[in-house]
């Protein structure tokens, strides 16, 4: 008899939970509960959720390092793809609903405003990661190259936090929270890297 997969409920559960934000935004928009400026509200919330998923995807390996948990690793691809999914919804809301597909205004924004430039860069960096997220792509690229490419996830997430930080007018508490979490996650990885290097040089 085939051994049943451990925690069969984990991935479907997170998948359904991850769709809650987009469902909530659509439901509130339909009910007229997104406030006086619904486009801005949807735009901000979609961007925030995208950042949450990017940070969550980067948390999987540190959780294994710190606590020995392996189950987050199984969620990593899905979390990253949800980051891209919400990033895509965020960018679409900006270009279609906010700017009304006025590409000249969008281009002017991207080139003139550094926070939008940084946000656009975040999204552009996520595209190759989403495209090569399949097992087939991993095989085609070879693990070493695939891994090197997917290090872009760090760059993208750092840029995402900077985009958030530069956007707020005055109250930086929320971006600082995400920046701090991200910094802790990166420090854990740095610790792993240094330990490996030290062990290697000791031999």
């Amino acid at each position: 008899m085939r051994r049943p997969k451990p925690l069969p409920w984990l991935k479907p559960g997170v998948f359904v939970g991850a769709l809650v934000p987009v469902a909530a935004i659509l439901f509130r928009a339909w009910r007229g509960e997104l406030g006086a400026n619904p486009i801005a509200q949807a735009l901000n919330q979609l961007g925030l959720v995208a950042l949450v998923f990017l940070v969550a995807a980067l948390a999987c390996t540190p959780l294994k390092t710190l606590f020995g948990w392996t189950w987050p690793i199984r969620l990593r691809r899905m979390l990253g793809l949800f980051g891209f999914f919400y990033g895509l919804l965020h960018v679409s809301t900006y270009t279609v609903l906010d700017q009304g597909l006025d590409w000249r205004a969008v281009w002017a924004d991207v080139t003139k405003r550094k926070f939008i430039y940084v946000g656009a860069s975040t999204f552009v960096l996520l595209v190759p990661l989403a495209v090569t997220s399949t097992s087939g792509a991993l095989k085609r690229l070879g693990y070493a190259r695939w891994k090197r490419l997917h290090r872009l996830a760090y760059v993208a997430t750092v840029l995402g936090v900077i985009h958030f930080l530069w956007r707020v007018k005055r109250d930086v508490r929320e971006p600082i929270v995400y920046g701090t979490v991200l910094a802790v996650l990166l420090l854990v990885r740095l610790g792993t890297y240094l330990r490996v290097r030290l062990a290697a040089s000791a031999n």
């Binding site: 984990l10 559960g13 997170v14 359904v16 939970g17 991850a18 769709l19 809650v20 909530a24």
Partner: peptide, 15 residues
């Protein structure tokens, strides 16, 4: 039950 709890937990945290 675990599936329901996971989706509710993840969705609730995001909200």
């Amino acid at each position: 039950a675990l599936f329901t709890a996971t989706s509710a937990g993840a969705g609730g945290s995001l909200l």
